[in-house]
């Protein structure tokens, strides 16, 4: 191999820093780039609408696989939050910028600020050592949309089969579910907002759908360009 950035460390797996670094002069494009070109997405801010959809692009997304007890220790040490052990749990750190979400009995999704994921993966791997686990960087493959506003719940009722009533999707809950004719991860990090984790290739479809379904309320989809 050439001068590899990847290291064959914990788990005997190859890690790989996908980012070129700030000095490389490389401009990333979020999964909503095409939607922006098509005029479906605007810059952040602007007049208040009944529903706001804001993309949080370029975050670090890591999938953790393994036993709950093993992973919990490492996650607590590195992120300062405990791994949600109960199905559908979602926990955020004190700042609210890092989250860990139950996906299945042996799978969790970690979302951290942009650029943190490679170091975090390496630190977790170092802690986990020889245990049986997997960490997969999926940050290029999905993006996060925040939904807020008075009619956000009603918009979701048009879009997902899951019960988005406060009795169904309580704060601190995250579920994989049907969204129109695709699927999303639907999260409820706080009273005020919902989050959708959408796959990159479906992102424009999801935005088209949200705009169409939200038209009667007034809805804007925003994203900071970089």
């Amino acid at each position: 191999m050439s001068e590899a950035r990847s290291e064959d460390n914990g788990g005997n797996a190859a890690t790989f820093d996908t980012h070129p670094g700030a000095d490389a002069g490389v401009t990333p494009e979020s999964p909503l780039q095409w939607s922006r070109v098509q005029g479906r997405v605007t810059e952040e801010g602007g007049a208040a609408e009944q529903i706001r959809v804001v993309e949080r692009p370029f975050l670090g997304h890591l999938v953790l696989r393994g036993g709950a007890i093993t992973l919990d220790e490492a996650v607590r040490a590195e992120l300062g939050v405990s791994l949600p052990g109960k199905p559908l749990g979602l926990v955020l750190d004190a700042e609210g910028s890092r989250s860990v979400q139950w996906v299945s009995p042996d799978e969790w999704l970690v979302i951290v600020p942009a650029g943190e994921e490679f170091e975090l993966e390496n630190r977790l791997r170092a802690r986990l050592g020889d245990a049986h686990f997997a960490i997969v960087n999926v940050g290029g493959g999905q993006t996060l949309l925040e939904l807020s506003g008075e009619k956000a719940r009603e918009l979701l009722m048009k879009s997902v089969t899951y019960d988005v009533h406060e009795h169904g999707l309580t704060v601190g809950k995250a579920v994989g579910t049907v969204f129109a004719k695709t699927s999303v991860v639907l999260r409820r990090p706080s009273e005020e907002r919902f989050e959708l984790v959408v796959r990159r290739s479906f992102a424009d479809y999801c935005v088209r759908w949200l705009r169409d379904a939200g038209r009667e309320y007034g809805l804007r989809v925003e994203s900071a360009s970089h």
Binding site: T18, P28, P57
Partner: peptide, 27 residues
């Protein structure tokens, strides 16, 4: 300038390099 994994596999029968980069840097 973008970190990439490059695979020398060919579906054309010609010399070929398949470049994989994180999708946000593809363009």
């Amino acid at each position: 300038g973008v970190p990439a994994r490059v695979f020398r596999i060919s579906f054309t029968g010609e010399l070929a390099f398949e470049i994989n980069v994180q999708a946000n840097y593809a363009m």
